[in-house]
């Protein structure tokens, strides 16, 4: 992991690609949605078949940090033809890509959360939890804790957001497994303590499949000074 981070910094990257971000985040014990990096159209179609339709395709490069705004996300592709067309569209935008990420389509129950990591000059790595999705920054319903987090810290920060009721049974969906969230929050805090190379982390959205949290979009920002 250290090597992956340092290599990226050596190459002058400001962030990890989503593929690498997901690997780092999964290593911290956060469940991440299945994905593979395709380097050709045929590979993309092959991976999609293996994974089962529908799938999501995303242009993958360390420079692509605002995927939606850059038109780099193709959602819910249902068959070979749609995957092939999406592959051509993403690779035809004139942006240098590592490849195209083929990701399982997660039918979420609309509940979206965010987990993040930031570095404070006085307190060091801090973990964020809150309401995720596209309204995150508008509603700012988030809580912070300084790493390392105890189990109690994690539970308290989960309980601190105004929309905490969304973690209970919600419109026919079961209550969210708090244990998995706690493990994820502690894990992200520990990543921050262990790797100075990581400046910030965004997991947004973290969706709920059944009762389990699952990261479907991940971003690791690097600290070039390290």
């Amino acid at each position: 992991m250290k090597e992956l981070l340092q290599n990226a910094i050596r190459k002058g990257q400001k962030a990890l690609s989503e593929y690498d971000s997901a690997r780092v985040i999964a290593s911290a014990g956060v469940p991440v949605s299945k994905s593979t990096l395709a380097r050709s159209r045929d590979e993309a179609v092959g991976f999609a078949r293996e994974m089962g339709f529908p799938v999501v395709l995303k242009g993958c490069a360390h420079t692509v940090t605002h995927k939606t705004e850059m038109g780099m996300v193709k959602l819910k592709l249902k068959d070979d033809a749609e995957v092939a067309a999406a592959y051509d569209e993403l690779t035809g935008k004139g942006i240098a890509l590592d490849g195209v990420l083929v990701q399982e389509w997660v039918e979420s129950d609309k509940r979206e959360f965010v987990i993040g990591l930031t570095r404070d000059p006085q307190f060091g790595p801090c973990v964020m939890f809150g309401l995720g999705g596209i309204f995150t920054e508008v509603l700012k319903d988030v809580s912070f804790r300084v790493a390392p987090l105890s189990e109690l810290d994690a539970l308290e920060m989960i309980d601190e957001i105004r929309t905490r009721k969304m973690l209970d049974e919600f419109r026919g969906s079961p209550a969210v497994e708090k244990g998995a969230l706690v493990k994820a929050l502690i894990g992200i805090g520990n990543l921050g303590l262990e790797y100075d190379e990581i400046r910030e982390i965004d997991i947004n959205p973290l969706v709920i499949r059944g009762s389990a949290p699952l990261a479907v979009d991940t971003l690791v920002i690097l600290d070039a000074k390290k």
């Binding site: 993040g116 990591l117 930031t118 964020m128 912070f144 300084v146 920002i221």
Partner: peptide, 14 residues
């Protein structure tokens, strides 16, 4: 650079 960074004001951290 990230959403998290944008929301972690000094006071929120304190």
């Amino acid at each position: 650079a990230s959403h998290t960074g944008a929301m972690a004001g000094t006071h929120a951290t304190y």
